[in-house]
Design a protein around this nucleic acid. Structure first.
Lengths: 136, 136
DNA sequence: TGTACTGTAATATTATTTGTTACAGTATGA
DNA sequence: TCATACTGTAACAAATAATATTACAGTACA
């Protein structure tokens, strides 16, 4: 993951958490992050799919957290934006006639799976509530 | 890091570890990984800079581990290829007039630093020797 | 029924990663 | 001493991925 999606998603969730029961528009959120509103709507769409937010359409519409910030873990955010394994997506096709090449992808996959499990455990210790309460 | 450099570097080191005191050419290594020899030389150059390998130039030249595989940790490999923080490089420039936007980059940086520390601890538990001994 | 939103497709732009070509430098050994 | 087989690295090209933009249909409110 070389993109900014984790940062963007966490920024969105932080804004929603501090907004309480007020609906925030994608325009407003985009203004805080300083990116395009369509990108925000795409991330909102993804967060909604993962059950973290709810959206009301139409005039005076906008988004809101779907559950208390204490119940949203940073590992949930990571899962929502994750596309490829952390350390590389193993797109190499090593030479199968080389004893190392033949086996390495399996061992790399095992390693990456293991490392990501550690990452998830770490991120699972912090909730959105914990993250947001640092803001003063 | 959305690239393949960790995989490539670990593949190179695995080959060198199994080659013992034999020098391996970039051409040979590239053949096992199935990528361009120049890319291999670039990674070799980086690994050399980080003290993990040594290279002999000229005819019959090639590369070899600079120290025992037990003394090369996967965290060393990560450090060598790392360019940007794990979860995003925070290239956003949030709106400073928004209370969340004003502070979020600092909190994201803190979080990413903390998470990477955990990753390093995890990777530091496995040496190149441990990784290579899985190969049969 | 106009207005202010959302959702999403399609496309364009920009950035990053990977691959290639080219060539100078170095050590070996016939 | 010179052909050979390597390395090192710069410069450029191509491919891929991330981000931004435009456009427009759908929805709900007042």
């Amino acid at each position: 993951m070389n993109n900014n999606r984790f940062s963007v998603s966490l920024h969105i969730l932080t804004l929603l958490a501090t907004a309480g029961d007020e609906l925030l528009s994608s325009e407003y959120i985009a203004g805080s992050i300083n990116i395009n509103p369509v990108l925000v709507r795409k991330e909102l769409s993804n967060l909604r799919k993962h059950g973290m937010i709810e959206t009301r359409e139409g005039k005076a519409g906008g988004s809101i957290l779907a559950k208390p910030a204490k119940q949203i873990l940073l590992s949930d955010v990571y899962t929502a934006v994750r596309q490829v394994p952390l350390l590389g997506q193993n797109k190499n096709e090593p030479n199968p006639s080389c004893p190392v090449g033949k086996q390495i992808n399996k061992h790399l996959d095992d390693l990456y799976t293991d490392v990501e499990k550690t990452l998830m455990q770490k991120l699972g210790k912090t909730s959105l509530f914990d993250f947001v309460k640092q803001f003063k």
